[in-house]
């Protein structure tokens, strides 16, 4: 086989493997590791709000915040917006924040956001409960509100 034929084969296998992985994992809402609070009632000190020091520090929902990271070149960001808007409409105390990732790159780095859309579910104190990359599955977002 020529070099080109090998590269063609490798490209097809790579695309199939990555695409298959994305089909399986896209939009899956994964729980964050629970925050260890050694002293009861001391949670806020153990893990400060992820949004502390940002323009969104005072925008947290009472119960949950759906923190969406979007960018200019992102087709699924719009569908994500619609899913999260429907969830916030149906659940009082839940707020949807849509953040332009490009404008908040330090936050993006700190939170390990690799692509858009990525959605973080934050609790009332701004700590991560769960996150999803890709258009989040609505039922799993709702499950993360409990």
């Amino acid at each position: 086989m020529t070099i080109g034929a090998w590269v063609l084969l490798a490209s097809v296998l790579l695309a199939a493997a990555y695409g298959g992985w994305r089909v399986l994992t896209d939009g899956r809402v994964r729980r964050a590791a629970p925050v260890a609070a050694s002293v009861p009632g001391d949670e806020a000190q153990a893990a400060p709000s992820l949004l502390a020091g940002t323009a969104y520090a005072d925008s947290l929902g009472d119960h949950r915040t759906l923190l969406q990271f979007s960018s200019a070149f992102c087709a699924p960001c719009r569908a994500t917006r619609q899913v999260l808007a429907r969830v916030t409409e149906a659940h009082p105390g839940v707020v949807h924040l849509d953040v332009d990732a490009e404008q908040h790159l330090d936050l993006v780095r700190r939170l390990g956001i690799m692509r858009t859309p990525t959605t973080l579910v934050l609790d009332g104190d701004g700590r991560e409960v769960a996150r999803a990359a890709g258009v989040p599955r609505a039922d799993q977002v709702v499950a993360a509100l409990a």
Binding site: S71, C74, E102, R115
Partner: peptide
Amino acid sequence: CETYLLGK
């Protein structure tokens, strides 16, 4: 599109 944020 997904490389856009990584590039940034």
